[in-house]
Design a protein around this nucleic acid. Structure first.
Lengths: 144, 144
DNA sequence: CTAGGTGCAAAGCATTTGCCTCACT
DNA sequence: AGTGAGGCAAATGCTTTGCACCTAG
């Protein structure tokens, strides 16, 4: 996709979510799609500051949060807010409630045996893996 | 496993890693294995404060970090330090380097089609899922 | 005895908030 | 015109650090 097409798609998506298209938002969006390293807000901020010297870090935070809430971009993990420990160190998996952030263990032998892609083992040393399921848990569902 | 057996196993593991067994460490360990909710340090601290009124939150942080480094307990995610955004919102997976915290996308149709356990869909609303591979990336491997 | 662990307080940072001003539609 | 967005600075809250004292081995 050309940059112009990406920009047009971005504008369409913003309109669909009733989000104003501003130069700051466009710069932030371009910076995210142009960075395959899964950057944090500070990194995005540094990249666009050159072209937008007056932009503020708080705007970057607010904008990324807005994009995420509207599914324009995504978070690598939604457990970034605090350290979460697990008594189990053996292979297992997790469900994470997107509302209350509850974590529930999943034990499943088929998941334990999933086929590891060559792109993983080909170049890197694999330590372990796990599947995470983003859910809305039964408690949170029934509350609404 | 009885509580006595768990305590014995804990002592064995500490010895194996040259970690002193202290009342604080034992209390923290018991609190973690007795809590299936994947608690954070603050929660652990609150639970053991009743029995150990002089314990400090900093000790809980240090101890959990020590346990994790020695594989006595584990972290639910090792991307808790900062928000990490992803330009892609379609189904894909991630490798995370445990050393440099780099995140690398993994696209794999077999992973996209993995069998979702009944324990997930039976009670909860599934929003999405993903596989994460904990790795030591080629860059970090070659540096050592 | 002594290396390692604890507790306290202060420091460090990532993130959020309040509020006023400004700009998009 | 009016609502939504941006910028700045202060506040918040989780986590780490430094250091003096203590304790397990």
């Amino acid at each position: 996709m050309s940059e112009q097409e990406q920009v047009n798609q971005f504008i369409t998506r913003c309109r669909a979510h009733r989000l104003n298209v501003t130069p700051q938002r466009l710069a932030i969006y371009k910076a995210v799609i142009g960075d395959k390293s899964h950057p944090n807000p500070e990194t995005i901020f540094s990249k666009i500051k050159k072209e937008n010297p007056t932009i503020s870090l708080a705007t970057v935070y607010k904008t990324l949060e807005t994009f995420e809430r509207n599914s324009i971009i995504s978070l690598v993990t939604n457990l970034h807010d605090t350290l979460r420990y697990d008594a189990r160190t053996d292979l297992h998996h997790h469900m994470i409630c997107n509302v209350c952030k509850k974590v529930i263990d999943v034990y499943d032998n088929d998941l334990n045996r999933l086929a590891i892609p060559k792109s993983v083992t080909g170049n890197h040393k694999l330590l372990s893996f796990g599947v995470h399921f983003d859910i809305i848990c039964s408690d949170c569902s029934s509350k609404n």
